[in-house]
């Protein structure tokens, strides 16, 4: 579904991604973790070309991003993305947030888009808030709306960029619950997150990044199983986040 091939990226002289290669199969859930500044957010933003890269290629569902002829908006419409800071559109109601791109990008009728939006809103447990503006919702609620907004486009894959890092602790679970449910339904997912509980529960593979490179890329059982077999950097990282 996603094939990342030898991707490198520089900001000026500074290399943020170094020769990253990995795959995400259809129906697979891959968790990307690593210390801040390790390039994990940059990597996931490269997957729907929100960030350009200078070397290598990423192929999403058969479409090459390095190919200059690729219609990027069209590709992005098929890739759902959830951001750390939700990025709901504050000047629109929740329903409008869910329907705007369906109508303007996919060309769906207003009635069809609204029906779809409300169904997804019900699924994330927020149907009662349909008429509100994002500013009237809590962080957890906003992030659930953001997930519904991405799902409304019927994406072939979902990307999550630290979806729970900006949330109060008590709201983390309501968002993770939606993500777990999504994973169990077979959605292909690539998630940048530090929620190791989530990784243990639903991930198929775990990728560990450090200083712009993929250091570990292995099955979940292997990653959490024999810690002594992990790289020095991954051991330090795991020791820090699993301590409490």
């Amino acid at each position: 579904m996603i094939s990342i091939q030898n991707v490198s990226k520089w900001y000026g002289d500074f290399q943020v991604l170094g020769d990253c290669t990995t795959q995400v199969q259809k129906g697979e859930v891959v968790v990307v973790c690593g210390p801040s500044g390790s390039g994990k957010s940059t990597l996931i933003k490269c997957v729907n070309s929100l960030e350009p890269f200078q070397q290598g290629d990423i192929v999403v569902d058969g479409t090459s991003l390095a190919d200059p002829k690729t219609d990027l908006p069209k590709l992005r419409a098929r890739v759902g993305m959830v951001f750390q800071h939700f990025e709901l559109f504050p000047h629109l109601t929740v329903t409008e947030n869910l329907t705007l791109a369906q109508v303007k990008v996919l060309g769906r009728g207003k009635a069809e888009a609204t029906e779809k939006g409300l169904a997804l809103l019900e699924r994330v447990g927020l149907k009662a808030h349909a008429h509100k503006h994002p500013g009237q919702l809590s962080g957890g609620q906003q992030q659930r709306v953001a997930i519904a907004r991405a799902l409304a486009m019927d994406p072939v894959v979902m990307l999550f960029d630290e979806p729970t890092s900006a949330l109060d602790p008590e709201m983390v679970n309501e968002v993770l619950d939606v993500m777990v449910q999504l994973a169990q339904e077979g959605m292909t997912m690539m998630c940048v997150t530090h929620e190791m509980g989530f990784a243990r529960k639903v991930a198929n593979r775990v990728i560990f990044m450090d200083r712009g490179s993929i250091v570990e890329d292995c099955a979940k059982e292997e990653f959490f199983g024999d810690v002594s077999a992990r790289s020095e950097r991954a051991r330090q990282f795991l020791a820090k986040i699993l301590q409490h």
Partner: peptide
Amino acid sequence: GQMSAAQALGMT
């Protein structure tokens, strides 16, 4: 992020 979110939804 607003521009990114709009573009991530497939808008030009």
